[in-house]
Simulated scan of single mutants.
Amino acid sequence: MLVAFSVSPLGGESESVSEAVADAVRVVRESGLPNETTAMFTTIEGETWDEVMDVVRRAVEAVQAHAPRVSVVLKADIRPGHGGQLQAKVERVEEHLDRS
């Protein structure tokens, strides 16, 4: 299962969200699950819904420490029995691009 999510503080004292987002990303990286952070989302890969959503919950809690309100956007690709998709999905697209 892949879950791409973004979490952002709302209503805090600063216009910058980078410190709060860094705390969320730290939670993800310390989880030990395969992950990737881009400019808009962090994607994590896990075996079960509970495993992945526990990390998302803890990342949200990390951001809540910075602001009274938090926004979460989440997208999931649930495909039991298919691991290693964090890289494999991109590799399949790159193979098609290389053929062009």
Score class of each variant (00 low, 15 high):
25 V>G: 07
83 G>Q: 03
55 V>G: 02
82 H>A: 09
31 S>E: 12
24 A>T: 12
49 W>P: 01
11 G>S: 04
96 H>N: 05
46 G>S: 04
58 R>M: 13
1 M>F: 10
60 V>I: 14
71 S>D: 02
28 V>Q: 10
62 A>K: 02
93 V>T: 09
47 E>N: 10
2 L>A: 11
88 A>R: 09
100 S>L: 15
60 V>L: 04
72 V>M: 01
60 V>P: 00
78 I>T: 14
44 I>G: 01
65 A>G: 04
29 R>M: 06
41 F>L: 11
8 S>F: 00
49 W>S: 08
72 V>R: 00
69 R>T: 07
67 A>C: 15
60 V>N: 11
48 T>G: 14
21 V>I: 13
96 H>D: 07
17 V>I: 13
57 R>Q: 10
35 N>P: 02
19 E>A: 12
47 E>D: 15
23 D>C: 12
78 I>R: 13
4 A>C: 10
39 A>F: 07
77 D>A: 13
59 A>E: 09
28 V>W: 07
36 E>P: 00
79 R>E: 03
100 S>D: 07
46 G>C: 09
6 S>V: 05
4 A>L: 14
29 R>P: 01
69 R>Y: 00
31 S>D: 11
31 S>R: 13
59 A>F: 11
28 V>I: 10
92 R>C: 00
6 S>E: 02
72 V>G: 04
31 S>Q: 03
88 A>M: 01
10 L>H: 07
13 E>A: 10
38 T>I: 06
73 V>S: 08
15 E>V: 14
88 A>S: 10
44 I>T: 04
60 V>H: 11
22 A>E: 09
40 M>G: 00
70 V>N: 00
100 S>R: 14
80 P>Q: 06
85 Q>M: 15
39 A>C: 08
96 H>F: 12
37 T>E: 06
88 A>H: 02
52 V>M: 13
7 V>L: 04
74 L>N: 05
33 L>P: 08
92 R>N: 08
52 V>I: 15
5 F>E: 04
78 I>S: 10
70 V>M: 05
21 V>W: 03
54 D>H: 09
26 R>G: 03
91 E>Y: 01
68 P>N: 03
35 N>D: 14
23 D>Q: 14
88 A>N: 01
75 K>H: 14
82 H>L: 07
8 S>L: 06
62 A>E: 11
59 A>W: 09
9 P>H: 02
78 I>P: 02
64 Q>K: 15
21 V>H: 04
67 A>E: 09
98 D>G: 06
1 M>I: 14
34 P>E: 08
61 E>L: 15
2 L>H: 13
33 L>H: 14
29 R>C: 01
16 S>F: 10
10 L>D: 02
31 S>A: 08
11 G>R: 05
70 V>D: 09
21 V>Y: 06
47 E>L: 13
50 D>N: 15
93 V>K: 05
29 R>S: 14
61 E>Y: 02
65 A>M: 06
18 S>F: 11
45 E>S: 03
17 V>W: 04
26 R>T: 13
12 G>W: 08
57 R>A: 15
